[in-house]
Design a protein around this nucleic acid. Structure first.
Lengths: 192, 192
DNA sequence: GAGTAATTTGAGTAACTACTCTAATTTGAT
DNA sequence: ATCAAATTAGAGTAGTTACTCAAATTACTC
């Protein structure tokens, strides 16, 4: 892959892989579907990728990275920022968002993916927890983290439903969730 | 299927199908996996079922039905009851719960499943909305329904995460969610 | 316990899967 | 323009898929 055409073909294949995963899921993604979508023959695919897995994992990485476009802002953004960023991701990166949600479930099959998804999830929970702790001094760090766990999982539920129903108003429900979870609950009284 | 052994075999195959879907997802479910799990040869499977689809759909129906064990109670149960019933389902019917969550995503491929899942979801939202409206007179019916939409989707998010992380405390997070969504928000101020 | 229908067996099929290989073509530095 | 390397073409392979079928076995009725 040193010529321009090779790089273009590689990009086209990754785009196609993304579209196919978004449409058919990780398990339902076949080489034929990818090649048809990318207008490429199997020989070309295997000239640029070692395996189907490699292309799929590249897209998986894209999706996970795209969820949080600016991980370097750590320690400065509010929960509202974080939720808004996720909503923006869901609304503007339709295919990648679908891929992301598909991964969350397919992970339960492939143990390596499972571990990767869980690690990413924990990172998000921690970041949300810190933001929550900053804005709600009444919460202990542990309480903030637990509420962040609820929030992040719930947001994923909203994202999940959008895959089924494209008219689902993600922005609205995310805001309701955020308002409710951050309002008036200085103490986590549901514990124990 | 008129002999006792045939009925037993049928049940064993459905149990196996349930376990395989829970473990590998709808797309990842193969006749071989089902037959191995049920200790049956393909010929026997096809003596009792017309197709793989038929067995899978039977399990899908089981899962959807099991989510709400008592649909006749309509109009009398509280949101707390409904949430508790879902939590109980998730905790006590591990395999069926996994199947249920898997369906929610796989539905995006098979359009018939998608429609069925959406119909079921809408039914649940309506039931949750009615319970919410009963307990919170400050909410209009429409507001109650919208909050129910948020709640049901969020609960599914919590269920989804449990598939990835079996130690996830579903009961706790469901209660936090319920408390937050039902507390102090007589007016849906996030609208518009 | 004989007869009949249900059930099980297990090899077989056609279509699909991921992936390979060689020959033909295209690319870009010289 | 030449030439080596990159890229593409496209038939081919081995394994897996859902599903079939005739023959052997088993279960129940009388």
């Amino acid at each position: 892959m040193r010529y321009k055409t090779g790089i273009e073909t590689r990009d086209r294949i990754l785009e196609a892989t993304r579209a196919v995963i978004a449409r058919s899921g990780l398990e339902g993604t076949t080489i034929k579907a990818i090649c048809d979508e990318a207008n490429v023959l199997p020989g070309s695919f295997y000239n640029l990728f070692d395996s189907k897995e490699q292309a799929v994992l590249a897209v998986v990485r894209q999706a996970i990275d795209a969820v949080d476009p600016d991980p370097t802002h750590e320690g400065t953004d509010t929960i509202s920022d974080l939720v808004a960023a996720y909503v923006r991701f869901l609304e503007e990166e339709g295919d990648l968002a679908r891929v992301y949600i598909r991964i969350a479930l397919s992970g339960a099959n492939h143990s390596d993916l499972n571990a990767r998804v869980l690690r990413h999830h924990e990172g998000r929970v921690e970041r949300f927890g810190q933001a929550l702790h900053r804005s709600s001094p009444g919460l202990t760090w542990e309480q903030a983290e637990r509420r962040a766990e609820t929030l992040v999982s719930s947001l994923n539920g909203i994202a999940l439903h959008r895959v089924l129903d494209p008219t689902f108003d993600v922005a609205h429900h995310a805001r309701v969730l955020l308002d409710d979870i951050t309002s008036g609950h200085a103490v986590d009284r549901s514990r124990g």
